[in-house]
């Protein structure tokens, strides 16, 4: 199938940078170690902060390091290719392709995510398992399967938001400022900077309702067994609703951008 081919091609493209991958795994691991100790100090003071214990906190840190690149929290991925193609005008070629443009880029981004999961996801995770007794794998099959599903939804959510940011290049001369802002927001509200569960109210509730919670907090909570049974389904449903909204918005933006390109010639 076409989309599988697109995904495979992107996977291969990323897998040519071996040196970068090894360096990245190392860097992720260094940050994982730093945050693990910082969080352990926090949970040492308040052993039940956010409903986590120290072991949950350490596991959370390493899930975060594993997902940082996989979910492309900072930005990057095929949406960067899109922004570049909009800038150069090559996007016109994409617009006339007979297949859906969004599906095309999404398939590519899933291929990229698969590569990053297998390398920069699994690399630090193995290290965490070796270094920290507190690091735990999912406690049940339900948690493991739920995590995988939630992770796929996380990548799609992140893709949808990055898509919107990249499409701003249709109207803005230089979208790097917006891209950086979006990265900062994602970093904070995904729970990458600090687990959303220890935010004070009402910020905790607000942050958990935003789409960025999908990136890390939701999959991590499923991994940790904090959301089980119906609650797990509710978590996945929330991710699904945001995806529907954001992809719909993305489609709308693309349509008006297409009109702009067709009418004004770019």
């Amino acid at each position: 199938m076409l989309y599988v081919a697109v995904a495979t091609r992107t996977f291969r493209r990323y897998s040519t940078y071996v040196g970068a991958t090894v360096a990245g795994i190392f860097t992720n691991s260094v940050f994982g170690v730093i945050y693990s100790f910082a969080y352990l100090a926090l949970w040492d003071q308040r052993p039940d902060a956010g409903g986590y214990d120290g072991s949950d906190a350490v596991t959370y840190v390493w899930i975060g390091q594993a997902l940082l690149m996989t979910v492309a929290v900072w930005g990057g991925g095929t949406t960067d290719d899109l922004a570049e193609r909009i800038r150069t005008g090559d996007v016109a070629i994409d617009l006339y392709r007979p297949v859906g443009m969004m599906g095309w880029y999404l398939a590519g981004d899933l291929g990229r995510a698969a590569y990053h999961l297998l390398t920069r996801g699994i690399g630090p995770t193995v290290l965490a398992w070796l270094l920290f007794d507190q690091f735990d794998f999912p406690g049940s099959v339900q948690a493991a399967l739920g995590f995988v599903l939630s992770l796929v939804l996380a990548v799609v959510t992140s893709f949808a938001i990055r898509w919107l940011v990249a499409c701003s290049a249709f109207w803005l001369l230089d979208q790097s400022g917006l891209r950086m802002m979006a990265g900062a927001l994602a970093l904070f509200f995904s729970g990458m900077a600090l687990p959303l569960v220890i935010f004070p109210e009402p910020w905790r509730t607000i942050a958990l309702a935003l789409p960025w919670a999908s990136y890390l907090q939701t999959p991590a909570d499923i991994w940790l067994g904090k959301r089980e049974g119906l609650d797990l389904l509710a978590a996945l449903a929330q991710q699904g609703v945001w995806i529907a909204v954001l992809l719909g918005l993305g489609q709308l933006v693309l349509r008006s951008a297409t009109r702009k390109v067709v009418v004004q010639g770019g």
């Binding site: 910082a38 926090l42 900062a184 970093l187 220890i198």
Partner: peptide, 16 residues
């Protein structure tokens, strides 16, 4: 936001 993160930690603890 880095520092905001640390400040938020201090809503649950007094010393780190």
């Amino acid at each position: 936001l880095d520092f905001v993160g640390i400040a938020i930690m201090f809503t649950t603890i007094d010393t780190l």
